[in-house]
Design a protein around this nucleic acid. Structure first.
Lengths: 255, 255
DNA sequence: AAGTGGTCTAGACCACCTG
DNA sequence: AGGTGGTCTAGACCACTTT
């Protein structure tokens, strides 16, 4: 991990350049959608890195649907995902709901927090790839925006993964954030499943709404350096407060 | 566009190598999850391309969550998204439901197909960024698996985009597939919004199920080379027949 | 110590697009 | 014709991990 002048961690120089290009040209709309980034040659001078590194950075931006690269032309900035009043959650990004809210200038409160030390049921055992009966920790809570309940969350993790005292002291609403802040877990990706559900009375009670309405259930299994998952997160969200979006990219066969 | 020996189109050599690495090492489980791809040096020899190209290909695999790359170690293959009996739809992939079904060895039938030539309502106008009243084409139909209705789809496109006769003759259930097959549209990405809904009587009637159950509404705006979208697709899906998943990747600030 | 990825140099040639 | 990206050469040095 290299540390940059901005005090941010980046695995490689190319990743850092990737972020800086976004920050310097795209986020602030300095280069608008449809316009070109500076040429690779110019960027090598701007950032004092080689063309190799610039190309790696631009390739990442391309893979993420931030630019399209046209031979003989340059890197065209694509329109950003449009924002709305609802909290926009980009589903391909491994970031907590809290982070998404914070970036939007909002704050998620935590209500009815419960810490439970228990053992893995068959369900939990499958998700965390642990033997049934192994000790696990469950963290349940409601989340609210300006005292309006918007989500019900349950996180599960193997009891041995992290000191409960550490977890509790660093917990500010998101288990994921605590683990992401600890480099030693090397959290790198998660598999998310999206399921539409109709609110049953159990969850509607917790969220103070009537049953029978729609909700989105997000099931996330988070992986670090190990083959075995580190956390299983379950979230039930009321759709009126969120917007779930993603940029789909054309991919060629078998990928 | 370069044509390869396999008759597939790839924008660049690195993209082709990317696919070939997946096909040769990952798809067939020749390198299992947790194991290493051959070194970059070996891969340059295997594919007779430079290290530059290999590195670009591996960077793409990394961005897509297919491998993790560790300095001093190599490219570790990550576990693939697990498959189930339901049709698994990777939400970040710009591919039609038909393509997903076909890859899973299933076939989606089309029922109650309607072609409508009409004009843009405010709704359509916003999505397609067209003036209200501009002529548009709507294609509505049910989709079924083994005669069980599983989805209701509506596609909208500007009337001038493609000859209706061409579209009709090449249509096999998916408007997206027709346009993807025409290179001149240069379809490259789409913005997807995911909304959980409760089935109302209109759609439940079309799908031959009771109202009040859950459904997933997918709203997709597809972009080609232009700033203006080429297609707006609406899909209502019954969740029991599908699985919607995505790999989330850690991203560093502001990206 | 040996192997791997990350980055760099200092060029080069090609294909592509625009003026 | 000149600029851009795509690819290549033929090295090099560094940081990192494993043995």
């Amino acid at each position: 991990m290299r540390d940059t002048s901005q005090g941010q961690r980046h695995a490689t120089l190319a990743d850092e350049i990737c972020d800086r290009i976004v920050a310097d040209f795209i986020s602030g709309n300095k280069v608008k959608a449809g316009q070109l980034l500076p040429s690779e040659k110019d960027l090598t001078e701007t950032y004092s890195v080689s063309r190799v590194t610039i190309r790696a950075a631009i390739r990442s931006l391309h893979e993420h649907g931030v630019v399209r690269v046209r031979n003989g032309v340059g890197a065209v900035v694509l329109p950003q995902l449009s924002a709305t009043s609802a909290l926009t959650h980009q589903l391909d990004r491994l970031a907590s709901l809290d982070t998404v809210a914070r970036e939007a200038g909002k704050e998620l409160q935590t209500e009815e927090l419960e810490w439970v030390e228990t053992v893995a049921t068959p369900n939990v055992s499958t998700k965390l790839r642990l033997p049934v009966g192994d000790p696990v920790i469950a963290i349940r809570r409601c989340r609210a925006l300006k005292s309006v309940r918007v989500a019900w969350m349950v996180d599960w993790l193997p009891a041995g993964l992290i000191e409960v005292s550490t977890l509790k002291s660093e917990f500010e609403g998101s288990v994921l954030d605590v683990l992401l802040n600890h480099d030693e877990f090397e959290l790198s990706y998660a598999d998310l499943e999206v399921v539409p559900v109709v609110l049953d009375s159990e969850i509607s009670n917790r969220l103070n709404v009537d049953p029978g309405g729609p909700a989105l259930y997000l099931d996330t299994v988070v992986f670090g350096a190990e083959v075995r998952p580190d956390v299983w997160g379950q979230i039930w969200l009321l759709p009126e407060h969120f917007r779930f979006s993603i940029r789909r990219r054309r991919q060629f066969p078998s990928r």
